[in-house]
Design a binder for these strands. Structure first.
Lengths: 95, 95
DNA sequence: ACGTTAGGCAAGTGACTACTTGCCTGTCAA
DNA sequence: TTGACAGGCAAGTAGTCACTTGCCTAACGT
């Protein structure tokens, strides 16, 4: 659980999750250019790579090798632990 | 959102939330002794106090002054943002 | 085969964080 | 009023983190 929250505690990593939630199976370079274009992130390729490692160790990102490409996908499973540990009172009714 | 996840990224702070989820309106000393007794936490009073400050800045803990006591309570509201940002697929059906 | 492309490894740096130590401010009971 | 109790403020320290820099490996296209 430490790994999970530590992974989520960084803004760039949360943006990476947003991007992967939109479209699965993205490469490192795709994610780099998308974050730069759409969110003005200036981080280098290595920085993004390390962020993805952190997300992968937390179980939030799963990867698969395809040739020379490494495809990243979002796995929301670990987030369930949060809702299970501290259930949010009212699932927000539509008023 | 940075404050929220940063607050949750520490194990001692998560234990504090657990304790406050059990019983609201606890003082600093109550929380200190409970964490020490039930969870073997060795942190000092000042350490716990700083943790509570972090939780309060994240909106996860709300406080009220009563005489010389400062009562802490758990507010799960900010946690809703997590579920709203990355909805977890299946609310875990009972099989 | 050769250059290019996608990605990985590892050391170094500046900033931040959790925790301690020491002292101070209020509040209550006797 | 005095002492004890609950809590706050602030500086210092050891460890961690995000990011960079430089070089390396492996898979493709021509």
């Amino acid at each position: 659980m430490d790994d999970l929250f530590h992974a989520l505690s960084d803004g760039t990593r949360r943006l990476l999750l947003d991007e992967l939630a939109r479209r699965d199976e993205q490469t490192l370079f795709e994610l780099c250019s998308r974050l730069a274009m759409e969110h003005g992130v200036t981080s280098s390729r290595q920085a993004i790579s390390q962020h993805l490692d952190v997300l992968e160790r937390a179980g939030l990102v799963i990867t698969q090798r395809r040739g020379r490409y490494k495809l990243h996908s979002f796995d929301p499973e670990p987030l369930r632990q949060i809702a299970e540990r501290w259930p949010v009172p009212h699932p927000k009714e539509t008023p």
